[in-house]
Nucleic acid binder design. Sequence first.
RNA 1: GUGCCCGUAGCUCAAUCGGAUAGAGCACCAGCCUUCUAAGCUGGGGGUUACAGGUUCGAUCCCUGUCGGGCACGCCA
Length: 585
Amino acid sequence: MILPNQPNFKSHFAELLHHAASKVASSDLTTRIELARTKQAKHGDYSCNLAMQLAKPLHKNPREIATLLIDALPPSPYLEKAEVAGAGFINLFLQISAKQQFPYYVLKHGSNFGHQNIGAGKKIQVEFVSANPTGPLHVGHGRGAAFGASLANILAAAGFTVTREYYVNDAGRQMDILALSTWLRYLQLNGFTIPFPKNAYQGEYVRDMAQLIEKAHGKRYVHQPDLLLQNLSSTPLEIEVDEEEQLNKWIVSAKKILGEDYAYIHNFALTEQLGDCRNDLMEFGVEFDTWLSEQSLFDNGMVAHAVELLEKKNYLYQQDGATWFRSTHFGDEKDRVVQRENGQFTYFASDIAYHLNKFERGFDQMIDVWGADHHGYVSRIKGAIQALALDPAKLEISLVQFAVLYREGKKAPMSTRSGEFVTLRDLRREVGKDAARFFYVMRKSDQHLDFDLDLAKSQSNDNPVYYIQYAYARVCSVMAQWDEDAAILHSTDTTMLTSPMELALLQKLIDFPDMVESAARESAPHLIAFYLRELASEFHSYYNATRFLVTEIPLRHARLALVASVQQVLRNGLALLDVSAPEKM
RNA sequence: GUGCCCGUAGCUCAAUCGGAUAGAGCACCAGCCUUCUAAGCUGGGGGUUACAGGUUCGAUCCCUGUCGGGCACGCCA
């Protein structure tokens, strides 16, 4: 007899079928045992299509195979019966007593209920957000943050050892533009009339930084602004010039004039923005284990080292003065530059070094969470990994689609450079952290998200966040009125839970560990969001149809055990999404 | 123009890596508060899964084409 070592009947049944299959189909069985929850009660609780899968290799009728499999099933106290149905489905019926006893498992495991061990402690790294620290996070970053954080929680619950990482793009041109922007605002603050390029950072936060520098150091960084102006005016305004090229000249000029002080401005802006970002994320419930600096990869020679490795493996060539990586060899549409004509490494080069670094740190699996606009980047980074003789299967790249805000039925405008964007902080202030976190993961990540601000704010049953939290608060209220030690519910007799609604609710609780597993395996936090909505819905129905605090004590305790289990699962599920579970509303 | 993603009820979205009669919520209609929180519940109508073929026991899912939408196509990051 085989008994489950954890309250997971689905995997238990899968195990039974596996044993049956090894008898029926002899040795070479490669078909995976897939169990599915049924949609209709007459099909039992779980169904399996194994017989249909085996029909071809065994050259037999599926229904015939199904019968053989059922006959070969080892006995189990949890299996009421198994039936052949339809084209050859095997329908499994869970013992009613197994369902009735389930609150015992839920209450016993408490906040750990639902946790799985499919990860088996394997080290997995989730890298997400990784936004340039050149300004406040906006609502686009919010989705990546919510998705990555929830996914990391789910993976941890599924038994993985998770490292949450933020890759800091502190090297490169964007940071230089920020430093320049800050200095220009600083000079303006000190009374110099200097034009501000439109492709520099326009945001108010740049002026704030300038003010902070002014407050702390006075005119310490006012260096030869006349010289800067001279350099700038060298290009006549009438002549059409490449604005980006022009901005580069400004940066070069600023570096020359500031000398060693440039590093101060640069570092100040970086520290300030990164601190703001970290703080913002923390208030959003998102925290990281490691922040890895791109600049550090240059400083410790990792970038040069990575490029050298590619060179040794003959995947590089020179053309037009630059060094190219042969990414077309790995399915990319064109080759990519790793080192520019001017000798500087590209962002791609440091990213190769970064991924090499990830592999060297010994993660069993890695997940990169990127905005969907980076999808064209996937093949080249996978190519580089292959070129370095690393296993690309260890790296999963999750592309998260954009979120579009809707206010009063209309799109809310958002663009980064113009300064007219909605920040993540603004969004949190408007709808609250809980609603923001939930709404961001309510949809499948590869699906565009329409974020309805009015709905997120509304305190109504239309709002899924409140709907779920309200279910939790209702249980809390009942428990408070009962006002006895909940510990006695852990061992109470629950066999009088027999109504269809109670059995459905019990089955819903049984499903939770499977949901955690699916969400982890498919990198799909939205499954948890949907599950919680359904669980809350079934609870509300039960609540309206049944009185819990009945005078008959055994029945009261049985129902309270069920309700307390619902409470526990709601709390555990919300915790995976970092959404709070308020006791009163 | 080329590549990737997407197209499911009036709207917003699911559908457990090909499974049984494609499901929820909103909106619409009709009901439920002397009773544990009505921020709730009950019932009802809503579909040729963009379109046309193909693959097989079986297709929203896989393949081909068409139409429509998004994104990407730098020695930017």
